[in-house]
Design a protein around this nucleic acid. Structure first.
Lengths: 333, 333
DNA sequence: CTGAAAGCGCTAACAT
DNA sequence: ATGTTAGCGCTTTCAG
């Protein structure tokens, strides 16, 4: 930058100001500076800039399992919104484990991110999250998490899951098994609650034998569903609470040679690009991932820019696609 | 850091050294420093550290379409390898467009990343890549890209695609259509070359009417395949060259009410988690994404650490899963 | 084994 | 409209 200043015959200060548009510069001198920049191939050092200015234009994102297409789309949406605003994304994988999560977020904090978006692991509200808020770093929770007094955006879980269940109930099913996701995270809980509420509204109790925990693993789900569906009094319908669970469930059903919906009706939370391709086409609750990601970025950016308002808790509507895995007689198409 | 030093009764210099283990410190004083750190809740400022030390422990990754599960897994693998080495990942999406790519990589360079991994967009070798290498920033190309004298790691494309095609040929097909991905990127070219080579080895010429360009869009692929398969002299087999093309192709086939493999045999490049679930199960060439990602991270880390050797061009083997969409009589399982 | 001091490359008052 | 100057918070010679 010194070089540029010298060549343009101005001070470093002026160079800085033309670079950032932070104050009025005579157009003649600006031109000289720009020429000098061009000539030297100068590229500013954002690290130094960050140190001096006290802001990094950087946002940290902590999620688990980028392998999951759902999170891939989420990151994609967040990245786009941030880069449009001149921010850059630092990515950390928490592996859905508080310890890793603490390491990840610590590292982000050390790097002076201007804000953070986190899809909290189970138990995060007791350890990771308070640590972040204590630093004053703007934080928005995404996908899941409890109310800890910060912005939060996630899908509508309860009612979507409830509808999915009621639909099966309407079709006459009385033994509906549910495959839950990872325990301890709000999305699992809320979706399960929706399931329970649907049963309750029909005066039915939840049968513990029909509740399967797939943790966050496709394999576990497959094994458990296989076990359940091998029993003589197997359920007549299956509902899966997230995309990994769905894959495990479908694998189990397939392995047993059962057919959907003839032998067992099926519907699931989370849509796939191939839901339409599956035979039968899957009845699924589709989250609006793009909106969730973009909204999170927006909320965060607003906080970063000093916007000071009551924390918002946003639920993005979930859309149910009635297709035919549920055995629905009147599926569209 | 000044606070910590004062409380521990040492100099900032010593604090720095206990923090980084950069020189021997008497265990008594180290204990005092550590206590002071604990007590103050001190967290180092990595930005300042980076500026002073001249390295950021940061790696930039430029890819397109995180929405694609393939890239999601890639990022996942890279992230893990990097974080194990104490590095952090900054993510940028190039949208498979050189202009965006230039912006992304410029921004990464400004941020003084210690190295970069890029899945180059078409034409990148003429504009983006030289700019990077000129800065001396270690660079490794991933997934695709031509030889520009830097490390490169990607899947084995040619022979896998050739095998896929030969297999169809072996099954008696003579009119095999191919659905290509985005033009101008090496993976598309190499896979198409594999297809051509297979035909050539049987003394067959490539029929231009059987070559479909799906660009990078599922929708385009669907439309084109639909057109092709509606013709009276439609091909007897279809081969798709990447996962997006596969989805488009399958949608088209499904929409036409054709059945696989009875009406048309099918095989594809890229495996899905649900390939096994599809009816019929998909014959596919599976890339070893994890290995590709981890290898790229490794190569880069090595360069960053000053390892100076001839650029490596690594091809990670692609595995063909023979299932039954190809109409294979003896598919395993 | 430890401290002093000179930067790293930039920003942002404060002057003029 | 532009320049001067004092840092931002750390690392790292160089001394002792």
């Amino acid at each position: 930058m010194g070089d540029v200043a010298r060549i343009a015959g101005v001070s470093a200060s002026t160079v800085s100001h033309v670079l950032n548009g932070t104050r009025k510069v005579d157009s003649a001198t600006r031109l000289r500076v720009e020429a000098a920049i061009e000539q030297t191939g100068y590229r500013r050092n954002v690290v130094a800039r960050s140190l001096a200015a006290g802001r990094t234009h950087t946002v940290g994102l902590s999620i688990s399992a980028l392998t999951n297409p759902y999170f891939g789309s989420l990151v994609h949406a967040v990245e786009r919104a941030l880069s449009d605003a001149g921010f850059v994304l630092i990515l950390g994988d928490s592996h859905d484990d508080v310890e890793s999560e603490k390491r990840v977020t610590d590292s982000l904090l050390e790097r002076q991110v201007d804000g953070m978006i986190v899809a909290p692991a189970a138990g995060s509200e007791r350890v990771t999250l308070p640590k972040i808020t204590r630093t004053g770093t703007p934080l928005v929770l995404i996908d899941r998490g409890v109310d800890i007094g910060c912005d939060r955006v996630g899908p509508e879980n309860f009612s979507a899951s409830q509808s999915l269940t009621e639909h099966l109930l309407d079709l006459g099913h009385r033994r509906i098994a549910v495959v839950r996701g990872l325990a301890g995270i709000s999305s699992t809980t809320e979706r399960f609650d929706g399931y329970c509420a649907a049963l309750a509204s029909r005066g039915m109790a939840v049968d513990a034998d029909l509740v399967i925990d797939g943790h966050s693993s496709t394999d576990v789900a497959e094994r458990e569903v296989r076990l359940l569906m091998s029993a003589r009094d197997r359920p007549t319908a299956l509902i899966s609470l997230n995309n990994s669970m769905t894959i495990g469930t479908l694998k189990a059903v397939r392995a047993l040679g059962l057919s959907i919906p003839a032998d067992v009706a099926f519907s699931c939370f989370d849509d796939f690009e191939w839901s339409d391709l599956f035979e039968p086409r899957l009845t699924a609750a589709a989250q609006d991932v793009e909106t969730i990601g973009a909204t999170a970025a927006d909320l965060l950016l607003r906080r970063i820019h000093g916007h000071d308002a009551a924390p918002q808790q946003i639920r993005v509507p979930t859309t149910i696609h009635h297709r035919n895995s549920c055995g629905c007689p009147d599926a569209n198409r």
